[in-house]
Structure formats: C-alpha cells, structure tokens
Write a protein that binds this DNA or RNA. Structure first.
Length: 927
RNA sequence: GGGCGCAUGGCUUAGCUGGUUAGAGCGCCACAUUCACAUUGUGGAGGUCAUAGGUUCGAAUCCUAUUGCGCCCACCA
C-alpha cells in the first residue's frame, strides 16, 4: 500500500508514460492489408502557434477517435503537421524585426525569408511539443509542413493543373485590402463586423449652365431631392467620406422622379473641383439616404461595376498602407481616418456638409490583425471555383460526406452554392511564390510551370522574372489530406519514403475517415479540401466531418489574448493533469455546442482521475492471485456467482452498449458521462463496497460463500475492462494503472493498454433480473440511511429494520440480498414481511414497492412524523387520481402502447398499497 | 435582409426517435474521519422545463408565433 500514493500525481506519470509510448513506437501506422484503415489528418496548427484551449479540445476529440479505433482493430493513423500560415507568421517575424528597428523591406526578400526560416527552426516545434503534453498519439515521424520541399511541389502542381484548365486568371477587381498587412485577402479572410459609424450627407454642387461654379457657403440655396427645378446641388450620403476624392459620378435610380431632370448633368466634386456626371442605374436604391449615391469605382465593389458599365474613371486615392495618395490633393499622405476628419471639417466650413447621422454599418476586418479592410481596386490572381464546387456539393447532398451535427450541412451547401471566385494572390513574402514567369524582353506571354523555365517560349530570352506574389496559405492547406501522403508522388523533394510506398499509403489511407474542426474553418478549409479532393485525386477527402464548438470564457466571450481571458491549457495540465484537462473539456461540452469555461471546471476531471486512482489502489492492495489463465466468459459460465458480482458484470456490459452507441454517434460528452457515472457511482460506490467483506479479513458481514477468489476475479476483470474503455479519454492514468494491474495479477512484462482490444459486448452477462434485484437492495439501503439521518442516528450505528412488501418476487429477492443489505446499511436485524407488524415504535419511508421501517428505542417525534406522512399521502393521492383518470380514458387505452398501460396499472396498485399503509400508520400515530 | 443555435432549480447543464415521480455536477445545509479516496462518504433543501397558442389519449421533448441572448452569411452608399 505504501508504494502507491493516495493522491494521483499526474506530473510524475505523464511524461514518463508518453516517453514509453514513443520509445515503443506505438503511434506508428502502416498500410496493412490485414486491417481496415482509419485515418485522421490533423488540422495543421500554425507554426507560430502556441496551444490554446481550442487546440486542446480539437485534438482531444481526434485523439479519442484515433485511440478508440486503434483498440477496435483498425490501422489507425493520425497524420500530424503544421501550417506555414503566411500572413500570421510574417507578422510575427516583422514584429520581432520592429523591435530591432528594422523593416522587412530593409532586409530585402531573401534575407527576410532567411529570418523567417530561422524563426521557424527555433520556435516551429513549440506547438508539436505541446500537443505531446496533451497526449496526442500522432504518428510523429510522418510530420509534414505545408512548405516542405515535397509539399511545395504539390502546391505548384495544382496551380499548373488549374492554369492549364483555364481556371486561373489575373484581373483587376475590387478586393479586400488590409492596409496594415498590405496584402489582398479573400472574402473569407475579411469577416464583416458591426461598427457604429455615421452617414454623412454631402452637397455636390451642380455645374451651372453659365459655367459659373457656386462659391462655398451662402450661395447654395436649396437642397435637391425636394422637387425644385433650380437646385444648386445634389446631396449624397456616404459612410466613407474620404473616398469622395476618388468619385467619378453620382448615380440615381432612373425611376426616381426627384432626380430625373438631373441625369446627364455635371457636378463639381467638392474639395478637388473635378467634374463628374450624374448617371442613372437601377442598382440605386431610392429609399436609402437621399437616393443619390456617389460612385467611387476604385474603392467599392458596387461602384466598380457601375464604373465598368458606364466607362467611368477609376481613381485610386490611397497608398497601399492606407494613407491618401497624390490624387487626394491636400490630404495627401494623411492616414485614411485622419483624412476623413480633415475633409469633413473642410466640407463643414464650406457649408457642404448637410448633416451627420449615426449609422450602424458592418465592415470587413482583417482576420489576422483586425484592421478595417479597405476595398481597393487591384490586379490579383483568381480561381474560377464554380466548376470545382459541383462534385463537392453533390458529395454532401448524396451523403458521401456527412457533417456532425447535421445542421452544418446547410451552412456548407449555402456557401458552396453561392461560391465566389477565390482571390489567391498575397502581397507578402512568406509562402509559396506564384509559379508564373514573365519574359522581360518580349513581354508577350506569362508561363505557369512547376519547374522554373530557363528561356521564354516566344523569344527565347533568358531574361525571365517570377511573379512577386505568394499564394494564399489556404491554397496549400486545401491539399492537406493527400499532399501529406506525398501526392503527386513523382517529385523528388522528400526522400523519406520510396515512390511506391507513397502511392501505397495514399491508396490505403485515402479517403481519410473523419475530419475534426471548428465551425469557423468550414469555408476556409473543409469546403476547399472537399473540392481539391475531387479535383486532384478524384475522391472525397474524408467521410465524416465533426464540427465541435468554440471555447469561450464564463461570460461567453471568445478566449483571446487581447481580452485577457485566456485559460492556458499548459497551466491546466501542470496543475490538474492532461487527463483531467481532456476529460473535463469533453464532459462539459454538449455535442457541437460552444463551451463556457472557467478554471474550476477542471476539478471535475482531476477529482475523477483521483477517484479512479484510489479505486485502483484499493484493488491493487487486495489482489494477490495470479489471474493470467482466467477467461471471463468461461469463468462466468462455470462459477455460480453471487449477486453483487453478477450485478457489476451486468452493469458493465450494459454500460458498454450505451458507450459504443454514444461513440458511434460522435456524442463524446455522453460517452464521457456514461463512463463517469459507471466508475464513480456503480463500481466505486456499490461494487467495491460490496466486495470489501469478501476481500478484507476481519470485516463483519462476510457474504455467504465468501468466495474471495471470485470476488478478486470480477473486481480485476471489471476494472481492467473499464480502464480500456476509459483509455481514449484519459490515456495517461489508464496506462499507468493498467500496467500496475498487469504486474500484480500476471507478473507480466510491461505491455501497453494502448493496443489492447476494445471490450466486446457479452450479452449473456447482461441480466435485467439481476439488476432489479440489486436495485431493490440499493433502495432499501438508501431508505435506511435516509431514516437514520432524519432522526440523527449516526450512520455507523447498528439498527433494526423492517421492510413491508407484498410482492412475492421482491420478498425473495430481498431475502437473497439481505446479507449485503445488512452489511451496507449496518443492520443487526432485517425483517422482511408482507404485513406491517403491530406495536413496534418506528419511523417509515416509502421506496418503490416497499415500506421501510426503522425501529426506534427512544421517543419518536410524533408531530414531525405525522407531518411527513400527511405530505406523502397528499402526493400519493394526487398521483393516484391522475393515473386513475388516465386509465379510465378510452382514448388512452385504445392508443397508448400496452407496456405503458401495463406500467401505469402496476403503479396504481403499488401506490394504492402504499397509500393504505401510510394511512394506517397515520391513524396509529394520531392515537 | 437571410440563415442557424440557445433558453430546464443560485450557477453550469443532461434529457438522442413524444409515455421519468425531470436527472447530474458546482454551490448551499446537516452528519460522518482508525478500515482505497476530504480531490472523500452519507443524507437533505432547491425546478409551474422563457412566454402564448396548437397537435396528441399524453409535450421539457413535435408545430406556430412572441420575447431575450449568441453566432454565421449578404454588393446595408
């Protein structure tokens, strides 16, 4: 006993066990024709990443599945890796440079990239180390990085294939521009968020026939939109007034009577005094603002369309960093928001700012730095994505790929069916450079190629230049499920596997089985992987997509560094243990719902681990036989076991049935709770207590046959199988205990729980009769404890108990279990009969079919007892009334299933008996 | 503007295909410490299942509407 501490010490166990697993190569998986494959590719965390609760949750789900399937006999592969995360990583390194007072431009492209590499070498494995702390059983030697040499070849290959199909094009479009990161972003990377902004109403003077321009204030008379023929100006409403410097028209709706006469006239754009036209287009909403809209084709996507349609001027008024440029006149070099203020002041002074209205609006925000996105006209690379979406839509509609929970299917389909072309070029340096080359001499043709071309195909010049931009990070991530298997095989890049083995691996493990991720990743990654899978490999990348919730703080806010509400999983692991972290996270998260976290929640897992530890400690202290030759099924058939043993076996196997079902349905929290309930409240609370008399010498109440050996076997078997069931959830503690158990009962060398088979259901051991007999005993014991507490008799004091029950089966069952009852309820005498004995002073409790009476030596508090009985009688009467009414209802009798009616009838009988008994006692007491 | 989710005791929640006396955990109250575990045990108090209608023999569960909270999508000048 001394060698096992009374408290589970996760710190002492976890690193040692993890090392044991790794040293024994237990996470590795190989194409194995004798087994079915099960494969998960990890959502590759950013190389810059440090483990947060979202990762902890995400990877715990994956590890549970991987470990479960490994035990269930699958060749279970968890493919690990990291993502180069272009913008995020570049930002991190740029920030580091800033501390040294350097900009990346000072270094130049080559040197900067060296810096990033250097940074990656130093910190890139942080997240991997942290995943190991969590217990992740990834096949680490396979680890991939989205900028591995071989992986990069896959990226280029894909680009060229799409290029050859004509699906890649370059175009000038309004894109999401982040002025801080100074790059284009895809629509998904610029999520809209609510802002409290203003709607500014600005007067644009009309150019008079005389050619005279109205002066500033004083001269203007009437606003337009007022049905006056002689307006001097038109009022437009805008939320981004600084963009007016780039206006090239004002648009109205052609049906708008207020403005009909102005269409075709010319306005003088204030502040810059440029002439712009008034045009009419159906796109304009007559009801919004003044019904007249300024048109800025280089800074707004709608305006861009108008600009193209009416051949307007495209005036870009900003530098890439968000400051105003030469076209902004006196506002040149001001930041866009400073310029806004300055410009509004000037308008106000000139009397051209009619009014300002608070106006909630939503604007894109950079998903990496949160800056407000500037829609900006620029030349970028795009993919025509609609053709790729087709098979990806079909696969989900046909059920070839399933989302769990189901509701995400709709979200996915809705996005897919309205998919927009994907902007894939980024103006940063860290990433896959776009494999397109231009000839600087003839300038005739751009070429896309996996290998850098030597000479121009047209003019043979060697003066070629590669495109400066890099590809969107997600353009490499979308290949993850197959590029990690070295697709397309024939590139020389990575020498870790022979080409034949690469092909074999992909063939064996692809399509992968399950993808586990968070909802915000559906568009970025899940949808695109599905498209890539069909396009490049011809098959779906995975069969099931499990979408879990978002980790929030206790107020429901997302956890973020800036909010300071982070709970660091590594601190939790240090304090509570990785198993506790894992179990707590899983157990409190309803399927697919967000989870609201606070540190106390981890006590749940820690306490549970400690409970299991101590139950095991007790078992280890009391197991002294070599059980190597015992087969549970044979044993069960041969031996006539006592009720507690039959009961715990029955409970175990019915628990296993429910557990399997929950896991099959991705109901992880339910699975965790089934195990918790069984281990704590059945195995520990009841079975171990019932096993004690047989195991411990010198305890009173030894059960009849006192078969110590049978008790040992059942205790061991149930514990050992339970450990296996719990292993995917709490891998460390289960391994530690399991190995100790093997040593104690088998004298065996160290093996591992990891590769033990998942327990098989043994239906012959599930026995409803046994369970209800035991339930009767549990009810009596509980009632007895309850009665003792009520009259403040210490639980340890021996008492006399009578049970009154009519049901003959129940009487027989109670007689069978009476030793156990007497032991656990501390009874000197247990009297089971069908009629209440007279003349004994006692208090009573109703439990199921039984009335339980506790004999008392002293005086009973009659008032209290009467009160309690009256309450009971009241409740019983009400209940009886409603049940009898139901049984008289013809519709009920006609339509309800027989078993429901039957049970209702039984309850009426039982309740009637109880009511009669209670009334009788009440009468006695009243005398 | 469209879509989705959530609403159950003081807090966090389970309740999957309608039939329970609506389960837990934390917190609270009372009692318990030689016998695996105070990271414990035993017992208790505490719920008109957001509101209003409807379907049904029967609704926390299904339908409709309302309210509140949260999330996602959209070319909301």
């Amino acid at each position: 006993m001394n060698e096992i501490p009374a408290r589970y010490n996760s710190q002492e166990v976890e690193d040692r066990i993890y090392k044991f697993w790794q040293d024994n190569n237990l996470f590795s998986a190989k194409a194995n024709p004798d087994k079915k494959p099960f494969c998960i590719v990890i959502p590759p965390p950013n190389v810059t990443g440090i483990l947060h609760m979202g990762h902890a949750l995400n990877n715990t789900y994956q590890d549970i599945l991987i470990r479960l399937k490994r035990m269930q006999g699958f060749e279970s592969l968890w493919m690990p890796g990291t993502d180069h995360a272009g913008i995020a990583t570049q930002n991190v390194v740029e920030r580091q440079l800033a501390k040294e007072g350097i900009k990346r431009q000072d270094l130049g492209r080559e040197k900067f990239l060296q810096r990033v590499e250097q940074w990656k070498e130093e910190y890139g494995s942080t997240i991997i180390k942290q995943l190991k702390k969590l217990g992740a059983s990834c096949d680490w030697p396979r680890v991939r990085f989205t900028m591995d040499e071989g992986y990069s070849e896959a990226v280029k290959e894909v680009f060229v294939r799409l290029w050859n199909k004509g699906l890649i094009y370059q175009d000038d479009k309004i894109i999401n521009w982040c002025p801080r990161c100074q790059t284009a972003l895809s629509d998904e990377e610029a999520p809209h968020r609510q802002l409290q902004g203003n709607l500014y109403y600005i007067r644009y003077p009309i150019k008079q026939a005389s050619g005279l321009r109205p002066q500033a204030s004083g001269q203007v008379k009437k606003a337009c939109g007022m049905r006056h023929a002689a307006c001097d100006y038109i009022v437009v409403a805008t939320t981004r007034p600084e963009t007016m410097l780039g206006d090239s028209a004002v648009a109205v709706n052609p049906k708008d009577k207020r403005y009909k006469k102005f269409v075709g006239k010319v306005l003088i754009l204030p502040l810059v005094n440029r002439e712009i036209k008034i045009i009419a287009d159906n796109m304009v909403d007559r009801k919004f603002g003044t019904g007249a809209v300024k048109v800025t084709p280089a800074h707004d996507s709608n305006d861009y369309l108008l600009g193209k349609k009416y051949r307007l001027e495209f005036v870009n008024v900003m530098h890439p960093d968000g400051r105003m440029n030469d076209f902004a006149g006196s506002y040149k070099d001001m930041d866009r928001f400073k310029a806004r203020e300055a410009l509004l002041n000037d308008l106000r002074e000139k009397g051209l700012l009619e009014k300002v209205q608070p106006h909630p609006l939503s604007a894109g925000h950079c998903y990496r730095c949160q800056s407000i996105i500037e829609p900006r006209l620029s030349r970028q690379w795009f993919i025509k994505i609609a053709p790729l979406a087709k098979p990806a839509i079909k696969a989900v509609k046909d059920g070839g790929i399933k989302f769990h929970p189901k509701r995400w299917t709709k979200v996915y389909l809705n996005w897919m069916e309205n998919i927009q072309d994907w902007c894939i070029s980024r103006q940063i340096w860290w990433g896959h450079r776009i494999p397109v080359w231009y000839c600087l001499d003839c300038k005739k043709e751009a070429v896309a190629s996996v290998e850098a071309p030597r000479v121009c195909r047209v003019c043979n010049s060697a003066n070629l230049k590669q495109d400066d931009d890099v590809l969107d990070t997600w353009f490499s991530s979308w290949l993850w499920p197959f590029a990690t298997f070295y697709w397309p095989f024939d590139h020389a890049g990575d020498k870790r596997l022979a080409i034949g083995d690469r092909q074999k691996d992909l063939k064996y493990f692809y399509p992968t089985s399950v993808l586990v991720t968070a909802p915000e990743i559906i568009f970025f990654w899940v949808a695109r992987m599905i498209m890539a899978g069909f396009e490049f490999v011809g098959k779906e990348p995975f069969k099931d997509v499990y979408i879990h919730g978002t980790v929030r703080d206790r107020e429901g806010k997302k956890m973020s560094k800036s909010l300071g509400n982070i709970i660091d999983p590594l601190e939790i692991i240090a304090k509570y243990g990785a198993d506790a972290l894992r179990f707590s996270l899983i157990s409190i998260t309803a399927a697919g719902e967000d989870l609201y976290l606070s540190e106390e929640k981890f006590e749940l897992g820690r306490n549970f681990a400690n409970k299991l530890w101590n139950a095991s400690r007790f078992s280890l202290m009391n197991l002294d036989l070599n059980l190597a030759s015992v087969d549970l099924c044979v044993f069960f058939e041969k031996e006539k076991l006592e009720l507690p043993e039959r009961w715990i076996l029955s409970r175990f196997y019915s628990m296993l049935g429910r557990l399997n079902k929950a896991l099959d349905n991705f109901r992880f929290n339910q699975a965790a709770n089934i195990l918790y309930e069984f281990i704590w409240h059945e195995f520990c609370d009841w079975y171990i207590e019932l096993a004690k008399p047989n195991l411990l010498s010198g305890l009173a109440g030894k059960r009849v046959s006192g078969e110590n050996r049978n008790t040992q076997i059942v205790l061991y078997k149930v514990l050992e199988k339970t450990l296996r069931c719990l292993h995917p959830f709490m891998p460390f503690i289960t391994e530690e205990i399991w190995q100790k158990l093997q040593l104690k009962t088998h004298n065996s060398q160290l093996t591992t729980i990891m590769t033990q088979p998942w327990p098989h259901i043994q239906k012959q051991m599930v026995d409803q009769g046994v369970e209800s007999k035991m339930q009767l005993a549990i009810d009596v014991i509980t009632a007895s404890r309850n009665l003792k507490a009520q009259v403040k008799i210490p639980q340890s004091q021996n008492v006399k108990l009578s049970i009154v029950v009519k049901d003959k089966k129940a009487i027989a069952a109670l007689k069978e279990t009476s030793p156990a009852i007497s032991y656990l309820a501390k009874l000197v005498n247990l009297c089971i009969q069908s009629e209440r004995p007279g003349g004994i002073k006692s208090i009573s409790a109703l439990s199921g079919k039984m009335q339980v009476l506790l004999e008392l030596e002293g005086v009973i508090d009659i008032e209290k007892e009467i009160e309690k009985l009256a309450k009971e009688i009241g409740e019983l009467t009400a209940d009886l009334k409603s049940k009898e009414a139901r049984l008289k209802n013809k519709e009920f009798l006609k339509k309800a299933p027989q078993e429901v009616i039957q049970r209702e009838k039984e309850l009426v009988t039982v309740n009637k008996e109880k009511l009669a008994a209670s009334s009788r006692i009440l009468d006695e007491l009243k005398k």
